[in-house]
């Protein structure tokens, strides 16, 4: 029996409360809170940018909206805390990290498309590089939770 089916059996045995709910307990609480703050502030900022000045930097602002959606997705997944949401949370952390790197590079090579700041431009410098570090902490934490669940 591989780790996956063993964990699945455990999910069923425990019933409502998945062992993956450890995602939002202990240090995971602080992580969930930081994600929630990012979801909130990125959404507020993206909403403002789209309403008031979308024409100024459509690419940067579209990316702001995508970033906001990813942060909301990650927050919801951390809160739900089951197997599926664990997977989706990993995926959203990876997308976030790739997004920060790609947008960070693009904002140096194509500054004309990123005239206005967004969450991910210049590797998240406007947000104290937290957007760059957060997905790494997220992935580390999710891997730790997964390891603990598999070990049982």
């Amino acid at each position: 029996m591989n780790g996956r089916s063993r964990a699945k059996k455990k999910d069923a045995a425990i019933g409502i409360r998945s062992p993956y709910s450890a995602m939002h307990t202990g240090p995971g609480r602080a992580l969930t809170a930081v994600y929630a703050i990012f979801a909130l502030s990125a959404t507020a900022r993206a909403g403002y940018q789209v309403i008031r000045e979308f024409d100024v930097a459509p690419i940067a602002y579209s990316l702001s909206v995508i970033a906001a959606v990813i942060y909301i997705l990650a927050t919801i997944c951390l809160v739900i805390g089951n197997r599926t949401s664990h997977r989706i949370a990993i995926a959203s952390c990876v997308i976030e990290f790739v997004g920060v790197i790609v947008v960070g590079i693009l904002s140096f090579t194509h500054p004309e498309d990123f005239a206005k700041p967004s969450v991910w431009s210049s590797f998240g410098i406007g947000y104290g590089f937290i957007p760059l570090i957060l997905p790494l902490i997220g992935l580390w934490w999710l891997a730790r939770v997964d390891k603990r669940v598999r070990r049982g």
Binding site: P27, A30, I37
Partner: peptide, 26 residues
Amino acid sequence: ILVVGLAGFWAFAELSRWGPGVLAAG
């Protein structure tokens, strides 16, 4: 206002060290 309100509510419900952890982030 939303951040402080939600963080405060969370810290009130949370009976571990991560209650203040959430407040610090907020």
